[in-house]
Amino acid sequence: NNSPVAFTVTAGSFGYPSNVFKVISREDGLLYCLRRLDNVKCVSNKICAAVNETWSKIRHAGICQFHKCFISQRALFFVHEYQPGGKTLKEKYLDHGGKPQLLQERLLWSYTTQLVAAIRTVHANRLACRCLQPNHILRTSGGRLRISCVGIADALEFEARKSLAEIQREDMVCLGRIILSLATRTMITPSTNEETLRACGIFLAQHYSSDLHALTSALLSKPPSVYEVCGIMANHTMDELDNAYATCDAYSNQLAAEYESGRALRLLLKLGFVNERPEFGVNRQWAETGDCYVLKLFRDFVFHQADETGRPILDLGHVVTALNKLDASDTEKIVLASRDGKAILVVSYAEVANCLENAYSELCAVSSEGQPTYGGETTADQSEMTHYG
């Protein structure tokens, strides 16, 4: 049910030839990440159903959500949440030329906190990530990390007889390798020799705090559980929480500004529908009488002011202030004058707001009832004319 749009090829990410596609679902129109593994003979439809049931319920901001896996065209497919613009930690920090720069310790603690939070959710559901490698962890905008490829190892190694404690312990060792890799800007893998590990450990101790060195050493030698790591990292978790609150506040302020702009836009749209409407059913003077006349004068008051010499005044502050007071139905009085100066009205913003609501409601009522609108033609007549061009 997915239509491929673009793809990149990776060679044997899980020991099998694999392709990664960006696809659009025909069911909901959303983008997804589709991974195809060829030559997989150890996975059946029954195994796919079991993995789907297990992983589809896992929700966490630090995990690319698993949607489903299935077998088709003699290949095994996995569908995960798509993260636009994401780069793996390997691409971002480990695939470099020349002498790399050290990462700030604050950033390392932030990454570690995010990964531990995601691992904690997975382990709490009696599962293991089994994909904690720099080439399977995405860094997206805002310094966010997201673990991708969850559920794939569970399907490929479904028949394996590893215990839950064993594979969860492997997760913690992989976390230690990731921290050491980022701190030293060196790719640390299970096959890395002892001499390289020792040199990287010395480098970590020389350039970073004892807390980070102690945590990394513990994860690589005698890994504690994820819950014990949460206790060890309590102070740094509070720092990450503070940053998250600050980000939420910034987003809330931005959203509030956009919401205020939306309120002004709604007022402008209503005024546009009502002001100087050429005809309204059989009443060709509707826009020049009653509430609509007040709105016409208010439109000139807001947008068509001029100085004593007749030059137009383009005062955005005046426009925003007037629209905000209209939206709030302020009781402040204003003077509205016709263009020829023969008609002068003293009204409040609240009275103008009431006129706007009455006129707009009248338009909506006639539109929804299908009554004549323009020159006596019914809505059905207009639709038929449009249909036939």
Rank of each mutant, 00 (worst) to 15 (best):
Y349Q: 03
C48M: 02
D340P: 04
Q65N: 10
D315C: 07
V226N: 00
Q305G: 11
E332A: 13
K333D: 09
Q101S: 08
F158R: 03
L255V: 09
P372H: 05
L31Q: 11
R284T: 14
R144L: 14
K92P: 04
L127S: 13
S329V: 08
L297Q: 04
C364S: 10
A380E: 15
L219P: 00
V43F: 07
K92Y: 09
L102V: 06
V347F: 03
E170T: 08
V23P: 01
L103W: 00
R185G: 02
L132R: 00
V335A: 06
E332Q: 12
H136N: 12
K46P: 08
M172C: 10
P372E: 15
Q206R: 14
E195Q: 07
F303C: 03
L115R: 01
D307S: 09
P190I: 06
A49G: 05
K333S: 10
E105K: 00
S261P: 03
Q114G: 05
S56R: 05
F303K: 03
Q114H: 05
I313L: 14
E105H: 02
L197P: 04
A124G: 12
A359R: 00
S163C: 03
G201Y: 01
V9M: 13
A380Q: 11
I188N: 01
L197R: 05
L356D: 04
G143W: 09
A165W: 07
H387M: 08
Y16L: 08
P278S: 07
D239V: 09
E195L: 07
L107E: 11
G97H: 15
I202T: 12
P278H: 05
I167W: 07
A199T: 08
T196Y: 03
L138G: 03
I334F: 14
V20T: 07
C48F: 03
E27R: 13
A359V: 02
A218N: 02
E195P: 01
R263V: 14
S383V: 15
K342M: 10
T247I: 10
S225C: 06
P84L: 06
L115D: 01
G262L: 13
R169Q: 09
A257W: 09
L220Y: 00
H136L: 11
T216S: 03
L255Q: 15
C149A: 12
N243I: 06
T88P: 06
E105R: 01
